[in-house]
Simulated assay, not measured.
Amino acid sequence: MTPAPPTPSFDADFSGDLVADLDFALSLADGADAVSMARFDAPDLRVSTKPDSSHVTEADLATERALRARIEADRPRDGIFGEEYGTTGATERQWIIDPIDGTANYLRGIPMWATLIALAIDGVPRVGVVSQPALGRRWWGATGLGAWTRTPDGRERRLHVSSVDDVAASSVSFQSIGQWRDAGREAELENLTRAVWRDRGYGDAWPFMLLAEGRLELVAEFGVKEYDIAAHVPIIREAGGRVTSFDGADDLAARSVLATNGVLHDSFLELLHRP
């Protein structure tokens, strides 16, 4: 009997050595950046529509193919779960990739998009890389190895979430009003925006990295898939933050995500589920 795949979660306990895996993930991001940037803002970029009515560009497909080819060649025993080409191989060690997170921005020539690369071991994201080449930014982290960023001038620094401990002094990102409306959470969004100091819909991968940098205290999204958030989890957790589903569950497949600076996580959960 074939064993069931591990249940994806946010659990952080792990004692393995991830140095080689993180180095490999960073090299994957280098290759992905070269492919995606070659077609960014191209006047003849080919764009099509998927069955769910979302857009996909030739760059999404080419970037994922390049990532898959490298993983299959260098890590043939590992599985892959990608947005564009689905799941192949084993699930005990699985690379979870979103070739271009923010395709709508990419196809309009807006530089707010990123390639997301994660390694999940037994269903838990342990390595994460977020690369935003159009802005010259990259963030990465792995369980036990900390969370880091590199700025356009080549400097690297370790990431730490903020120490803000008062909801009224917090700055938050909520993705979009339409997303919360579609999830039936408009009242909760209204409560949130009334309670915090500042609210903005920064969108896609960037606000999660702003959280890890200590510039925001909460990011929440609905309708997300594993490849939308897996890369963020190790980075945020290693920066000292906390990641759960919107309902507080330890579940990567819950189709919602609530990421905070940790100290305010329970307070935000209480606020967002207040009758």
Results as ranks from 00 to 15, higher is better:
P8W: 04
F10P: 01
D11M: 08
D13P: 05
F14V: 06
G16N: 11
D17K: 11
L18E: 05
V19I: 12
A20R: 12
F24K: 05
L28T: 00
D30N: 15
A32Q: 00
A34E: 15
V35A: 13
D41N: 15
L45R: 04
V47G: 07
P51K: 07
D52K: 10
S54L: 07
S54M: 03
H55D: 06
H55P: 05
T57R: 04
E58A: 11
D60W: 02
A62E: 15
L67A: 02
L67Q: 01
A69W: 02
I71Y: 02
E72R: 14
E72M: 13
D74H: 12
R77A: 15
D78L: 00
G79E: 01
I80H: 01
F81V: 00
E84W: 01
T88P: 04
G89P: 06
A90R: 08
A90W: 03
T91Q: 13
E92F: 04
W95R: 00
I97R: 00
I97L: 09
D98A: 08
D98T: 02
I100L: 13
I100W: 03
T103C: 00
G109V: 09
W113R: 00
A114K: 07
A120P: 03
A120I: 02
D122Y: 08
G123N: 06
P125Q: 12
V129I: 13
V130Y: 11
R137Y: 12
W139E: 05
W140P: 00
W140A: 01
A142T: 03
A142W: 01
T143R: 15
G144Y: 02
G144F: 02
A147N: 07
A147E: 04
D153M: 10
E156R: 11
V161Q: 08
V161G: 12
S163K: 14
D165F: 06
A169V: 10
S170D: 09
V172Q: 03
S176H: 09
S176A: 15
A183C: 04
E186C: 05
A187S: 14
A187F: 04
A187W: 06
E188H: 04
L192T: 06
T193P: 02
V196D: 06
D199Y: 08
R200E: 13
G201L: 03
G201A: 15
Y202L: 12
A205N: 07
A205L: 07
F208M: 10
L216D: 06
E217G: 07
V219M: 13
F222V: 05
V224L: 10
E226I: 10
A230W: 05
A230C: 10
H232G: 02
R237G: 05
A239N: 11
G240A: 11
G240V: 07
V243P: 02
F246N: 04
D247K: 09
G248W: 07
V257I: 12
L258P: 01
A259S: 15
A259V: 10
A259I: 09
N261T: 11
L272D: 00
R274Y: 07
